[in-house]
Design a protein around this nucleic acid. Structure first.
Length: 366
DNA sequence: AAGCGCCCCAACCGCCGGTCA
DNA sequence: ATGACCGGCGGTTGGGGCGCT
């Protein structure tokens, strides 16, 4: 069990209890005086790892009385010198019954991967699809293991480089740029591109026969996109001339537009059985336009083409799949599923339509 | 054996949205 | 309508473990 460190640790004063944290705390207290109310009396609560005694106290009380609907008041009731938030976290992530730690299955990997690509780092939503898993666990697992499995170390370094440059809040003119890409979006772009490339040359994206029937609006949008680039017939992977602000026609930079993989969510066998609560799911997630906006921002921010450097063989980049148990078959399951299913269903969901609406409006097509 | 650096993950933080007075 | 309070969330931190040199 991976709780070895903190769960069994007693009496060790962690760093966040000392020096730097005290200074930060003082700063925070100053801020609090300017307005924001504290969630608890920081000077009077214990912080750091939980002792077995504290765990026992908390567990015993909640087993008997429940949380009582008020985490803030709970620690005082049971004589714990802890912040209510800390109690809640300890309970949800560690003490709660039926919590699983570590040992993620391949199926869980697939679900996490699909959902991450589709909705990003909405860990609570992802955790809701994996019984016994906490958002914190999944987040940690993603950040420490799964991401590396999927992206590979080499790719990861590329992403870091790319995100480092794109996250520079000042452009070359020293002007602020608010449309900074999130690491999450970059990771999702890379993940998606890797999976997409595996489909070549007979992929859904390169095979018009597999494209679904479009609504009138969708057709219109596609036509608009094709108008922008007559050399490309695949609406899901456009090469678009993006005119720089106040530029002359024809001076735009050529970029690749990759369709975000939201639709894959609906095509997954595994997910279909698990996403019964999609109403609440959809109600909670932001429209995919966030992701689209980030993609668009990437196009506008970077002169470089999104994707693998031309000198790199895309397939050779997939050493990350060799790290997966079995083969890369393990990871292309969902995209294959999507391809066949979306082709057979002949429909696009509302999100897909929205993506194109956002896309078109973002480029202000006339 | 010792030093170093990377990895893992529990626990923290600030922010945000919902609720209620 | 407004502000306080609270729960929930995603991002970040850093100690300890562990493998490599």
């Amino acid at each position: 069990m991976s709780s070895k460190k903190f769960a069994s640790t007693t009496g060790i004063v962690p760093s966040w209890f000392s020096l730097q944290h005290r200074e930060r705390e003082r700063e925070r207290e100053n801020n609090i005086q300017m307005g924001r109310a504290p969630c608890c009396d920081k000077s009077n609560v214990k912080r750091g790892p939980w002792s077995p005694e504290e765990d026992a106290k908390l567990k015993a009380y909640i087993d008997k009385h429940g949380t009582g609907g008020n985490w803030i008041a709970l620690p005082q009731k049971i004589g714990l010198k802890r912040c209510g938030k800390s109690c809640r976290l300890r309970w949800l992530n560690y003490l709660r019954p039926n919590i699983k730690h570590g040992g993620f299955s391949e199926e869980e990997d697939n679900i996490i991967c699909s959902l991450y690509i589709s909705i990003g780092s909405r860990w609570s939503i992802i955790a809701a699809q994996l019984p016994g898993r906490t958002d914190n666990d999944i987040k940690n697992y993603w950040n420490t293991s799964l991401k590396k499995k999927l992206l590979g170390r080499r790719k990861q370094s590329n992403i870091n480089r790319l995100s480092a440059s794109s996250q520079d809040p000042k452009d070359t003119n020293g002007q602020e740029d608010n449309s900074v890409l999130s690491n999450s979006a970059l990771e999702r772009i890379h993940l998606y591109m890797q999976l997409q490339s595996l489909q070549n040359p007979l992929s859904f994206y390169n095979n018009p026969a597999l494209w679904p029937t479009l609504h009138t609006l969708q057709e219109k949008i596609i036509q608009s996109l094709q108008f922008l680039n007559e050399n490309t017939t695949n609406p899901l992977m456009q090469h678009i001339d993006v005119p720089p602000p106040s530029s002359q026609p024809g001076q735009g930079q050529k970029v690749d537009f990759y369709e975000p993989p939201t639709v894959a969510l609906n095509g997954s066998n595994v997910l279909e059985s698990r996403l019964d609560g999609m109403e609440q799911f959809n109600a909670k997630i932001q429209p995919i336009s966030t992701f689209q906006a980030e993609l668009d921002a990437l196009h506008l921010l970077n002169n470089e083409t999104i994707g693998f450097p031309p000198q790199e063989d895309p397939i050779s980049e997939f050493d990350c799949f060799k790290e997966m148990d079995g083969s890369k078959d393990n990871m292309i399951w969902w995209s294959n599923d999507f391809n066949s299913k979306s082709a057979s269903s002949n429909t696009w969901d509302a999100t897909s339509v929205l993506q194109y609406q956002n896309y078109v409006s973002s480029y202000n097509l006339q």
